[in-house]
Simulated scan of single mutants.
Amino acid sequence: MTESYYAAVYWPARLESAEECARRSVTFFRLLAQCDEIYARWFEQGDSLEEALQREFTPDFTTFLRFYQSEENQLGRDGFSFGAWTGHAEDGRGGMVNLTCGDASGAYPNCCLLYLPWLEIEPEGPRVMTTAALVNVLRAMVLAWEPLFGVIATHEFRRALRPAGDPRGFVGWLTYVSRARGEVPLLPPSVRVEPVEDKGNLIVCGPERLSAANPEHVALGRRIQEVLDTKGLLRPVLE
């Protein structure tokens, strides 16, 4: 079974202007570019591959402000959405970002989702899909968006740990929990916990990628998740 990994962070309803979302976006893309060269170039999404490849943009404040002030990127009375990709069409998906930010109603959950390279298909995969690189990716997301919860995992691993429709967070290969949720308790010795400045804690289950196809990985994820559930650290972002 080939599993595709993603990185995601989520935060509750939080009213933010186009200017505030633009500033956070600049921070995110700047920090992400420092993680790996695959994130150095970005393109707007288009109706076709040819169209999208003509829409390269510079991720600066003026550009993001223009995006968020555009009606096509606005959500209801408040909130914004935006999508971008790295243009690696010949090798797979490269990196693709979907953003929802600035929403105060809860109707459009605020999140930042980054699809990661395919390990077996894309040449950047072995370089990006390492613990060291992905710790920096998740840190970039946390520092830019200040979420309550974040994770790097696969959809298959999530389904192995939570029933369908369960709104709680879950444990992935890497998991982030905001300090606002509480302190991370003692976890198994193989698990590393490190702070992300004063924002919260990043939990690294180990150097090996957690896969739903490996029963030992699933068992480890469940053990960690039970401990975090007991402390209420993975309760739903939208309560």
Rank of each mutant, 00 (worst) to 15 (best):
G94L: 04
S17V: 11
R209P: 04
L220Q: 13
P207V: 09
C112Q: 02
E37A: 15
A84V: 07
P147D: 02
C21F: 06
L233G: 00
E146K: 10
V193E: 05
L119W: 07
A213K: 11
F149A: 06
Q69I: 12
E156S: 14
L31P: 02
I152W: 05
G83R: 01
S178N: 01
R30Q: 14
M141N: 01
R158Y: 09
A13I: 03
Q54G: 11
C101V: 11
G95M: 00
P109H: 04
A104R: 09
E239I: 14
Y68E: 02
F67W: 10
S190G: 00
E3F: 11
R179A: 15
F82A: 00
A104L: 13
L174G: 02
L113W: 11
N73R: 12
A144V: 07
D91S: 14
E156P: 02
D60K: 12
D78H: 11
P189A: 14
L228S: 02
L53V: 08
V193I: 09
G150N: 04
A132Q: 14
E19A: 15
F82N: 01
A219V: 06
A40V: 12
T100F: 06
Q45I: 09
L220T: 01
R24E: 04
V9C: 04
C35G: 02
W145E: 05
L116V: 08
P215F: 08
R30T: 14
F43P: 01
Y176I: 05
F64A: 04
M1H: 13
V218F: 08
E19S: 10
R93Q: 14
L138V: 07
L220G: 03
D47R: 13
S25V: 08
Y115I: 13
A133Q: 05
E183D: 15
L174F: 10
L119F: 14
L161Q: 08
D60Q: 08
W85S: 00
E216H: 10
W85F: 15
R181N: 06
L134F: 03
T63P: 01
K199H: 14
A84Y: 01
D229T: 09
T100N: 12
M141F: 15
D198P: 04
L116M: 14
F80G: 00
V97S: 05
R209M: 05
P195N: 03
A13P: 02
L210C: 12
W145L: 07
G87V: 02
E208W: 10
L138C: 01
V191T: 07
A107F: 13
N73S: 13
W118D: 15
A52F: 10
Y39S: 03
F170L: 09
L210M: 15
